[in-house]
């Protein structure tokens, strides 16, 4: 299977902290890969490196066959930041029209992206008047509108009600089935079961690169949260 993203010996410092001390991992193409780990484990930092906005100390990040951040990648990679990054003083539709234009798409693509995230009724509303969850969906739609080959989503389901969250995961699966590669970060282990592949991060180190089934089998429990704890304990046992 082809890898859409390969990361080799990636070292990233933020401030005085070494956030990623030498990470190596890969993301398969056409799948939903979950990047899971507790808050502060370096998920956002890794995603920023993949989209090419993170200053890195050393190592290599290759995205769709090119170095991360290459100009040629900018129309092929969509990025949704952890905090919704859209214009609060524009309407939903105006935001989408702008991001559509940046990807060379027209008004029809913008309207389709708004409908995709279930915001058709709020299209004329200013983003600052929306709820946090709605704002997050505007931010997501602003990346979907470019129909990228690789979608990098930083905790896109935070603050969403369970119904919407389930809908979004179905949407991610549908996108993957159509050939899109997705990297979705989350600190909620429960979401792990929705992914085709799992990267577990802890303090900048890759704890595990597996599938939900493998993880459950290894730890002998159905609860992925439990599996994660089990993994950490065995690792610590090995280190001690």
């Amino acid at each position: 299977m082809d890898d859409a993203v390969t990361v080799r010996d990636l070292v990233v410092d933020r401030g005085a902290r070494r956030v990623l001390p030498g990470l190596t991992c890969a993301v398969p193409a056409g799948r939903v890969t979950g990047l899971l780990g507790p808050s502060g484990s370096g998920k956002s930092t890794l995603l920023r490196a993949v989209v090419g906005v993170q200053r890195v100390r050393s190592g290599e990040v290759v995205v769709l066959g090119r170095p991360a951040g290459s100009p040629a990648l900018r129309s092929r990679v969509g990025y949704v930041t952890q905090e919704p990054s859209v214009y609060a003083d524009l309407t939903v539709r105006e935001n989408l029209r702008y991001f559509a234009a940046l990807y060379g798409r027209g008004a029809a693509a913008a309207d389709a992206a708004i409908a995709d995230v279930g915001l058709r009724d709020a299209a004329g509303q200013l983003v600052r008047d929306l709820s946090g969850g709605q704002r997050g969906r505007v931010s997501l739609a602003s990346a979907l509108v470019g129909e990228p080959e690789l979608l990098v989503l930083d905790e896109p389901t935070v603050g969403l009600d369970p119904v919407l969250r389930a809908e979004l995961w179905e949407r991610f699966a549908a996108l993957a089935a159509a050939g899109t590669t997705l990297i979705v970060s989350s600190h909620v282990m429960d979401e792990a079961r929705r992914c085709d592949r799992l990267l577990l991060l802890r303090e900048g180190e890759l704890l595990s690169d597996s599938t939900p089934e493998q993880l459950r089998a290894e730890s002998g429990t159905d609860d992925l949260e439990e599996s994660f704890l089990h993994l950490i304990r065995t690792r610590q046992g090995v280190a001690a």
């Binding site: 090419g52 906005v53 990025y79 930041t81 919704p84 990054s85």
Partner: peptide, 11 residues
């Protein structure tokens, strides 16, 4: 607001 970071990943 993070929009600059996002813009820098677009064309």
């Amino acid at each position: 607001s993070g929009t600059l970071e996002r813009l820098l990943t677009t064309p």
